[in-house]
């Protein structure tokens, strides 16, 4: 933390505009601010979790311009102009997102720490539309580790939403 502050001692912030859960935020951030830390510590959206901080667990998964990303592996400045959805932004008018409801219906968590990442990742997966079988759900959810081992119920929950979407012709 102490290195290469030689030269100017003033820390230069960079203006960044992010739309987070539908709300536009104009922010001044230091270049090394990680998106995950910005969400949790600056915007007080602590739903998104820090597991490993190194891209290895998926707990920090959010949707950036509709695509799932590890927010621990992104500098906030690089996402200028992006639309970001965190677990706090999935409900609509007080109704849970169908996948949130499905997680409850299927008991798809134990300690709950991986859950926000699992749900955001699952929403991304459903949007991608590539998973149709349980094997596919498992593989395309492999970027989310659950230390409690709730995997079977997580697959059940996602399968329920994909199934309901298919029935409704979505």
């Amino acid at each position: 933390m102490n290195a290469s502050r030689k030269g100017s001692s003033k820390l230069e912030t960079v203006p960044v505009t992010l739309t987070v859960n539908g709300e536009t935020k104009r922010l001044e951030v230091l270049p090394w601010t990680i998106l995950l830390d910005l969400l949790r510590d600056h915007l007080k959206l602590s739903g998104t979790k820090k597991g490993c901080d190194h891209g290895q667990c998926g707990a920090c998964t959010v949707l950036v311009d509709g695509r799932r990303l590890n927010s621990c592996m992104a500098f906030a400045v690089m996402k200028d102009g992006a639309q970001i959805t965190t677990v706090e932004g999935l409900a609509r008018n007080g109704d849970l997102h169908p996948l949130q409801q499905a997680f409850i219906d299927h008991d798809a968590f134990q300690c709950g720490y991986c859950t926000p990442g699992q749900i955001c990742s699952g929403v991304g997966l459903i949007e991608e539309g590539r998973a149709h079988t349980r094997d596919e759900i498992r593989e395309y959810m492999s970027g989310n580790i659950c230390r409690c081992g709730a995997y079977t119920n997580i697959v059940d929950a996602i399968e329920q939403v994909i199934g309901a979407d298919a029935e409704a012709g979505r």
């Binding site: 590890n70 997966l125 991608e128």
Partner: peptide, 9 residues
Amino acid sequence: GASPQLRNA
């Protein structure tokens, strides 16, 4: 390789 999230980045 990697995971869906990482491949998106």
